Structures are given as C-alpha cells and as structure tokens.
Amino acid sequence: MPEPFPPASLPGAVQSHVWDVTSAVDSQGRAAAYWRLDGRAPVRLQFDKGQLLVRNLCNAVGAAYQLDGHRIQLARPTSTLRACPDSALMALEQQVLAQLPGAQRLDLLPGGASQPRMVLHFGDGSRWELAGTPTPQTLYGSAGERLFLEVAPQRAACSHGVMKGAQCLRVREIRYSADGVKQSEGPWSLFYDEIQGFAHESGTRTVLRVNRFKRQNVPADASAYAYVLDMVVETETVR
C-alpha cells in the first residue's frame, strides 16, 4: 500500500483538490451503497480556509473544520433549506449531515496519474473513500474573477465552429452591491462556452455565481477563459 502523505503536507494537498466520494463502508465493514445515486454526480467535498463545503446535494452544506496532523474535527454542518423533490437525494443529504460530525481521521494516499486519494474515517468505524481532482485555482494558477450570470430558460441556435446545429446558452451579467442588492442587468448574449459544474435544464431560468479563469497557451479556436460554477443563486421554472 502506498505511504500516506506526511501530516505537514496535508493542509495544502487537501485544499488544492476537490474530493469525490467513490465508495463507502459502514460501521460493520460492509460496502454501503447509499452514497451513489444513478444519473447524479457523486458527493463532493471541498476544503477551503477552515470551511468544508459539500456539493452535489439538494442544499448547500457547510461545516467548519480543524486539521491537526491526520486528526480532523468537524463542527455540526449547516445547510440551506431548499425543498428537493428528489426523495433519494434528500435521504442522501440527511445521511451526510448526520455522519459528517463523526469524522475523526483523514488519510491521503497517492493515486494513479498523480491524483491523490482520501480516506475519511468516522468514529463508528465507517469510512468514505474519495478521489482528488485539482481545483480550478490549482489548474489555472489564480483565484479567478467572480461573476454573476443569469442563464435563460432556453438555448438558442448559434454558429459554433464546425459544429452544425449548435445550441448555445443565452446569458446576461448581473451586478449586485456588497449587501446583495441587485444593481444592474447586462444585455442578453450568446454564450459559446459551457460552465463547468452546471447542467442546463430547458425551461429553467437560473442565476449562477461563477469563477472565470484565464487559460494559458490557448489554441487559436478556443476560448481564452474557463468558467466554473461556484453556486446556484436562484432558479425559476418558466412556462
């Protein structure tokens, strides 16, 4: 078995990646299937400056954490209160909220293609195994620029290189004041990229908080920027 990362390197390695749950084991040592939902992205953990963010649930979930060597201590998680019509996703969210405070130990192991693996151990003997992917900040070498984009309910036909019949998102930039009051709306325009982490649903108007990163060594026919979803601000079904 590969040697775990030394404790001194854990904080940097933990924060420079996002972590997707790939398997889970219950307190009896048996494989647990609750974490996997067909057709949905896996539960994702992101450690950022003392805050753990949990992605791909119904609500936004977060908890303060402290890391001391391999020992980890998590505060009781908090979440938004959005109702989710997917009962299986809500059940998974409740499982995550109940289990996270019991985390006690975190091990990192080297993985294939230089991608690390994480094992998160809980006090009852259960554990999660996770695969690490570099964060956009790690990949692009900067914190990125924060934008708010409103995405129209329907895509629109667009000319997209050699792709015939391409359908692009329609977006406009929203500007907010420091206290969250909407200040202005930009004009609608075709958006020739995709937003990493965002799946557009026809008939749904969405306001997104995204981070825009400057790409390096961009081919002539590619976008100079990468757009990464940070948070869904609001959604509305439009009939």
Score class of each variant (00 low, 15 high):
Y227P: 07
L108A: 03
N211S: 10
P187S: 06
L74N: 05
Q73V: 06
F191A: 11
V171L: 09
Q104Y: 01
D221V: 08
R215I: 15
A8K: 01
A31M: 01
S9K: 04
D26W: 06
V18E: 06
V181F: 13
V43F: 11
A32S: 13
P85A: 01
Q196T: 14
P153H: 06
Y227D: 07
P116C: 02
I174H: 12
N217T: 12
E201M: 07
W35L: 11
V162T: 13
V207D: 03
G102I: 03
T235Y: 07
R209K: 13
D230Y: 11
R105T: 14
E145W: 04
T80R: 09
R30P: 08
G123K: 08
P110M: 15
Y227C: 11
W128D: 01
L45M: 09
L53H: 12
D20A: 15
Q115L: 15
E150D: 08
R76W: 00
V96P: 03
Q196D: 05
R76L: 07
G123R: 12
V151K: 02
E150K: 01
V119P: 04
F148R: 02
R44C: 13
L45K: 07
A98P: 04
L53V: 08
G39H: 12
Y192F: 02
I72P: 08
P42Q: 01
G144T: 04
N59S: 10
A220Q: 10
R40V: 09
T135G: 03
P6M: 04
A157R: 14
V218I: 06
A24H: 09
K164Y: 06
Q183H: 02
K214T: 15
A166Q: 13
R76M: 05
R215V: 12
A33H: 11
A156E: 00
Q94C: 10
T206N: 10
L74T: 11
Y65P: 06
E201R: 02
A32V: 12
Q66R: 15
E145L: 09
H121I: 04
P85T: 02
Q154L: 08
A24W: 04
Q95G: 12
L106F: 06
M118Y: 07
A224E: 07
Y225N: 11
A166M: 12
A157D: 09
V61L: 14
G111R: 10
V18G: 07
H200G: 09
V61H: 12
V228H: 08
S142A: 15
K49H: 15
A32C: 06
A83Y: 03
P134F: 00
P136M: 00
W128S: 12
Q51K: 15
A143L: 10
Y65D: 00
W19C: 14
N56Q: 12
T80E: 04
V21G: 09
P4A: 00
E3W: 05
R212M: 15
E234Y: 07
Q51M: 09
R105G: 09
P153C: 04
V151H: 03
C158M: 07
S87V: 06
A88K: 01
F198V: 03
H200T: 01
A91Y: 02
F198E: 00
T78S: 13
G39K: 13
R82T: 09
